[in-house]
Amino acid sequence: MTLEEDDELCFPQLFNSSCTKPKRSELEAVLTYITLSSISLLTTTLNMFVIISISHFKQLHTPTNFLLLSLAVSDFFVGLIMFFQIVLIDGCWFLGDATCSAYQYVAYVITSASVGTMVLICVDRYVAICDPLRYSVKVTQGRVQACVCLCWTSAVAYQSVLLRDNLDQPGRFISCAGECVNAGNYIAGLADLFFSFVGPVAVTVVLYMRVFAVAASQARAMRSQAAAVSLQGSVTVTVKRSELKAAVTLGVVVAVFLVCLCPYFIYIVILTAGGTLVNASSAAFVICLFYFNSCLNPLIYAFFYRWFRKCLKVIVTLQILQPDSSEANVL
């Protein structure tokens, strides 16, 4: 490794075997640390509010909300592991090879679980909109909880197999001291790309295209019947509108997820193909964009869901500590 005079090493005492730090101004470094730290704190706090709300208030114990709970759990852990990305933002890893392997493993498990949960959310909305009469029979709390458990278990098992070499021998893929990378064979990379990105995205897009097509036709039908309906009919319309609103809200969540996810997997494709055009700053940006999605989800809930705003008020004002607060009306 050839060093310039003004290059700064991660481990100066190791000289040629140490990685070099990317050059950046002090102001840029400070702003980066403040921004990422703020996002990490906001992500963990907001998703903790979502977790407490859905877990505590019995009115929110619905199949759809259990899927949101799973997503909030994964987003909460994303906020926690952002600390390690902050450590790595200067291009140097000081926490050891074993910690690096554990960080990579947890990050990939969370990513797989998030993608799987997004697919489950799309399936839930598909059944609710396209087959509303049998939704309560097909989608029960027990089945949703089983699907969520299977999603997380599969993510753990899948990544355990995929990252087996990295877990068995931490640091085997690093080229210099201070680097934290995960590598594998080309076939495994392509398989992961398909199962973690191409397949789920294709399913998500197809299902939601169908959902919004049916939702649009139902909206037109409701407008045409809104002039003269019986009391029973008006209740039916209200139920349909609530399902449509949920579909739109979760559609926004899915769309934002895909926008934040695509650059990350494009980056993975470039690495898998052996590309070298992505520098450290670009890699850090796409990773942080993916993590930032976990902060956006609770903000979307706060904007669209009145129940989340009510729960937030109850939690912040400590009314949640009162007896029987779990029975409170938050809808």
Rank of each mutant, 00 (worst) to 15 (best):
M1L: 13
D6K: 03
E8W: 10
L9H: 10
C10R: 14
F15V: 13
E26T: 13
A29K: 06
V30N: 04
L31R: 03
S40N: 04
L42V: 05
M48Y: 10
V50M: 08
V50G: 05
V50L: 06
S53Y: 05
S53M: 02
I54S: 02
S55I: 12
H56D: 06
S70I: 00
S74K: 08
F77K: 00
I81G: 04
F83Q: 01
Q85G: 10
V87Y: 01
L88G: 03
L95Q: 12
L95A: 11
L95T: 03
C100E: 05
Y105I: 01
V109H: 01
I110K: 04
G116L: 12
T117Q: 08
C122M: 13
C122N: 15
Y126D: 06
A128K: 09
C130N: 12
P132I: 07
L133P: 03
L133R: 13
L133G: 06
S136K: 13
V139L: 01
T140L: 08
T140W: 10
Q141A: 09
C147I: 09
V148N: 00
C151L: 08
T153D: 01
A157F: 06
Y158D: 00
L163F: 08
D165T: 07
D168G: 04
Q169N: 12
G171M: 08
R172P: 02
F173N: 12
F173K: 08
A177M: 09
C180M: 03
N182S: 15
A188I: 04
G189D: 09
L190Q: 12
L190N: 12
A191D: 11
F194D: 10
F197H: 14
V201T: 13
V201R: 02
L207K: 02
R210K: 13
V211T: 11
V211F: 10
A213S: 14
A213R: 13
R220C: 06
A221M: 14
A227E: 06
V229D: 03
L231Q: 01
L231H: 04
T236Q: 11
V237G: 01
E243P: 06
A246Q: 07
A246C: 07
A247Q: 09
F257E: 01
V259S: 02
C260T: 08
C262W: 04
C262N: 05
A273N: 02
G274I: 02
G274Y: 05
A280H: 11
V286M: 15
F290K: 11
S294H: 15
L296E: 13
L296H: 12
N297I: 14
I300G: 05
K313G: 14
T317M: 03
S326F: 06
V330T: 12
V330H: 11
